[in-house]
């Protein structure tokens, strides 16, 4: 038995003593990227083919060109993607609703992917908004609106359109009430999706509203319609951050 072997044996034994009978975890990385270095499994490609061909015929239609990327981002009070979708929803819904809507509130979680720069296909909009959610106008009381604002503060922001807000710990309920009383109304019309109107994403302030009205369009279709409309006008999609939600 040479010295090296003895040394290794001791190392091994001490390892066993140290770890037995519990478990030992060695090594670090535990994910394998599924990327272009892998060639396709042919059986799988064959299985996908008929489904893909049928889909591509419809989904590869280019709706509009985007002048920039709209990344899906987390942990920010406002994002270009959130602003785009909230703004266009309010615009399209207002045309259909035929009356003014105070503002729009959606959720970041419902916007499921990033939009690339360049061609925006119909399929990409399905990925952005895969759900069959419909746009609805919810009429709520001032009290519920205060809850809504507290919610925005708690979650750190959501996509909004039609108002600007500075969220501060210093603002009291009384001050908010005062602010709303200056608007001269105690009822507020808010555009959202039927999912959120049902209390989705903990938006409980939408439950038991004064009134719920369907706009008559799915959120996804509103996005598609907007893209087509902008393209027809010769416009590209552009993004903006305007400080509509800020924290103080």
């Amino acid at each position: 038995m040479n010295k090296l072997f003895t040394y290794l044996l001791i190392t091994t034994l001490s390892f066993l003593l140290a770890c037995s009978p519990s478990t030992k975890y060695v090594g670090k990385n535990s994910t394998i990227a599924v990327d272009s270095t892998l060639s396709d499994n042919q059986q799988t490609t064959y299985l996908i083919k008929p489904y893909k061909e049928k889909l591509d015929a419809e989904m590869n239609t280019v709706l509009v060109i985007s002048a920039e990327e709209f990344p899906k981002e987390k942990g920010k009070p406002e994002t270009k993607l959130g602003n785009l979708v909230a703004d266009l929803s309010l615009e399209i819904a207002t045309q259909l609703y035929g009356d003014s809507i105070d503002f729009c509130l959606l959720n970041f979680g419902g916007l499921r992917t990033s939009l690339p720069k360049g061609e925006i296909t119909k399929g990409k909009i399905f990925e952005l908004m895969p759900f069959e959610n419909e746009l609805v106008v919810i009429t709520i009381t001032e009290g519920k609106l205060i809850e809504l604002i507290k919610y925005l503060k708690l979650v750190g922001g959501q996509p909004i359109s039609g108002f600007e807000i500075i969220l501060s710990d210093k603002t009291t309920d009384e001050e908010l009430k005062q602010l709303f009383s200056e608007t001269g109304t105690s009822e507020f019309k808010i555009l959202t999706s039927d999912y959120l109107a049902g209390g989705g994403d903990k938006m409980n302030f939408f439950l038991n509203p004064i009134k719920t009205e369907k706009v008559g369009i799915k959120l996804r279709d509103a996005i598609i319609q907007y893209c087509i409309q902008e393209n027809a006008k010769g416009n590209q999609l552009t993004g903006k951050l305007d400080g509509r939600i800020t924290f103080e």
Binding site: I32, L38, Q43, P71, T113
Partner: peptide, 17 residues
């Protein structure tokens, strides 16, 4: 051209892996 995950994923590649 995806801003976050360009050319990543795919069932046929996962199957190969």
């Amino acid at each position: 051209n995806d801003p976050k995950y360009p050319n990543l994923g795919g069932a046929a590649r996962r199957a190969a892996l």
